[in-house]
Design a protein around this nucleic acid. Structure first.
Lengths: 143, 143
DNA sequence: TCTTTTTTATGATATTTATCATATTCTAGG
DNA sequence: CCTAGAATATGATAAATATCATAAAAAAGA
């Protein structure tokens, strides 16, 4: 469903959503320590996120990672697409190119709209939505 | 979601569902040729399926693989469990051990019951159900 | 401009998954 | 009981993913 890497990406972004701001930047080492994501691996994941403006970063002393207002408005699906590409989530259960609603593979109706709805949820939910849930105690920050 | 191996397993079982019977056994080579599953890899997948009585097999001249009446009544989830284990399908989206409905991770409600329902469908659907769909033209056999 | 702090980039290793190859066991038939 | 046809078992290789390590670039401050 999701690769390890995109799970880590989501965790890291959520950590920044809760613990960072333009004024309070966070070191990758801190994210790594608190979330138990291996340090060097995390760095490799943060790079494309930074390049694609999912997270913000400044280097040098006093630098670090943080989420800007714009970053917080990013839909979750973008994070997954950047890390996993856009095929992994949407492809047919049997990885058949020719499978669709009009010409369904045998498993097609077993997933039915469930996967479609899940993807729609990922498109319609932003980072700040999840941060709000965590801050309201409706879910917990994965550490 | 599903490993390559369990996709192959499902395809192979469906091929047998359509093309085999107690009287008409099928060589692994034929399955491989028709479904484009690599021959040696397919053999490795058929072995645990045979051991767990998901498919039937006899060796020696005139032998091969086939589905018995009992094999056809096997729910799909069994095939996936044998190949992938039972964690891959049911685990939390972020692979968090502590995630559940009362203590949900931030993504929990995005999947919501959709995954639960999918698994229920896999439990409630048998090989013969899918074979019937294919034979009735409601879906196609993946070749 | 030098040093330190931090991200960014690149490359190396390890682990898992997928694939290939071959030897072994079983069974039917001559 | 010998031979050939098949599944079964085991081990080797390749490719993808995850992880580790280090060097380079940028930015701030002295």
């Amino acid at each position: 469903m999701l690769s390890n890497s995109s799970k880590y990406a989501l965790k890291a972004v959520l950590y920044l959503g809760i613990n960072s701001s333009e004024e309070k930047k966070v070191l990758s080492k801190e994210i790594s320590d608190r979330t138990n994501i291996p340090k060097a691996y995390l760095s490799k994941i943060l790079q494309p996120l930074s390049r694609h403006h999912i997270v913000s970063s400044v280097r040098g002393p006093g630098g670090g990672f943080y989420l800007s207002k714009e970053n917080r408005a990013v839909p979750l699906i973008d994070i997954i697409h950047i890390i996993d590409g856009d095929h992994r989530l949407t492809s047919c259960l049997l990885s058949l190119k020719e499978c669709n609603a009009e010409h369904p593979c045998p498993l097609h109706d077993l997933v039915g709209d469930t996967k479609v709805r899940f993807v729609k949820n990922l498109e319609g939910t932003t980072v700040e939505d999840l941060v709000a849930d965590i801050e309201a105690g409706r879910s917990f920050l994965p550490l």
